Computed example of a mutant assay.
Amino acid sequence: MTQFHLHLVSDSTGETLQSMTKAALVQFEGVAPIEHVWTLTRTVRQLDDILDSIEQKPGLVLYTLVNKEMRDVLEKGCQKLNVSCSSVLDPVLAAFSSFLGQEIQQLPGRQHILDQNYFGRIEALNYTMAHDDGQMSEGLNEADIVLVGVSRTSKTPTSFYLAHRGFKTANVPIVPAIPLPQELFSLSNPIVVGLTTSPERLSEIRKNRLLSLHETVDTDYVDRERIKEEVIMARKICTRESWPIIDVSRRSVEETAAQIITLFTKRQEQAGVR
Rank of each mutant, 00 (worst) to 15 (best):
T158P: 11
L81P: 07
I260K: 02
T216Q: 13
M70A: 04
S154R: 01
D49C: 13
Q79L: 07
K80A: 01
I50L: 09
R42K: 15
L125G: 14
H5D: 07
R45D: 02
H214V: 01
A124N: 13
I261L: 00
Q268L: 14
T197S: 14
F160W: 15
K228R: 03
G120S: 11
M233E: 14
V61K: 00
P179T: 06
T21V: 13
K168S: 09
Q27H: 15
V253E: 03
R274K: 04
T196Q: 03
L74G: 04
R45L: 09
F4T: 10
E255C: 00
V44H: 06
S98K: 06
E55W: 04
Q56W: 04
V61C: 14
P33M: 13
S137Q: 08
D220L: 10
L100K: 09
R235Q: 15
Q259S: 02
V37S: 12
A271M: 12
D52L: 05
A95Q: 10
F99E: 06
Q46T: 07
L47C: 07
R71Q: 05
I260S: 00
G30N: 05
T239I: 08
G101F: 05
V92C: 10
P33K: 00
G77A: 11
D49E: 11
T13P: 14
T16N: 09
S10G: 09
L8F: 10
Q135H: 09
L6G: 08
L184R: 01
A163F: 12
M20F: 12
M129T: 12
F160H: 14
D132G: 01
S198M: 00
L60P: 03
R250V: 09
N117W: 13
L107I: 08
M20C: 05
D11N: 06
N67R: 04
L93M: 10
R251Q: 01
R251M: 14
T41D: 13
Y63N: 02
P157L: 05
R110M: 14
V146Y: 02
N171G: 12
R274G: 06
L202Y: 02
R121G: 00
A177P: 13
D72N: 06
T16Q: 10
F28H: 06
E29W: 10
S186Y: 11
V217S: 12
L40K: 08
I178Q: 13
V273E: 09
Y161I: 15
D49K: 11
N171C: 15
T219M: 10
F96I: 12
R201F: 06
T169Y: 08
V222Q: 14
T256H: 00
E241V: 08
A124Y: 08
P33N: 04
G59N: 05
